[in-house]
């Protein structure tokens, strides 16, 4: 990990703690997760106690301490999606990917997450693959989506 790169990102922002979330998000966009030595560097540079920083990265859902998959699938569990059967969609993903929600497949292809409302309530049930929304999901669509995304045809 090149720490100069981290320093450059930090320099773009004001050095008070209010920039913390933005800095960490940008670093994560670069590395897909937040490695230990990077966090130590951020704490040092922003002069934030490591205890506070470790609390923050373990509190907010956006931060990841382990590498995530190429495709991050987020299944919306908002109320509107729930009454239209979103839990069934999540379970179908779990079955097909053979992982539990919050986990990543071993080949780092997929990470499965749940999200409490994406704000596309008219389209429910909704899933999001990286930045794309997929509306009106059902079990059949889950299968075709995974087939389309996985190059190896494993899922």
């Amino acid at each position: 990990m090149e720490l100069e790169k981290i320093d450059k990102i930090i320099e773009k922002y004001s050095s008070d703690s209010s920039s913390l979330t933005s800095i960490l998000s940008e670093i994560q966009a670069e590395y897909s997760f937040l490695p230990q030595d990077v966090l130590k560097r951020v704490a040092e540079k922003l002069e934030i106690p490591m205890t506070q920083l470790f609390g923050v990265v373990n509190f907010y859902k956006i931060f990841k301490l382990e590498p995530s998959g190429k495709y991050i699938i987020r299944v919306c569990l908002g109320t509107a999606c729930h009454v239209k059967g979103a839990h069934g969609i999540l379970e179908e993903f779990e079955r097909k990917l053979k992982i539990r929600v919050g986990e990543t497949t071993k080949d780092l292809a997929f990470t499965l997450e749940k999200v409490n409302c994406l704000g596309c309530c008219s389209l429910g049930p909704v899933a999001m693959v990286n930045d794309d929304h997929c509306g009106q999901m059902n079990a059949v669509k889950v299968n075709s989506l995974l087939k389309r995304l996985s190059s190896s045809g494993k899922y």
Partner: peptide, 27 residues
């Protein structure tokens, strides 16, 4: 005006938690 990005935590919609979050603390 500055933009502060939320961390995907519902409780940060509560005013005091939101303020803590802007300050870079646990919400």
């Amino acid at each position: 005006i500055k933009i502060s990005i939320g961390g995907g935590v519902f409780v940060c919609g509560e005013s005091t938690a939101l303020i803590a979050s802007i300050e870079g603390k646990i919400g």
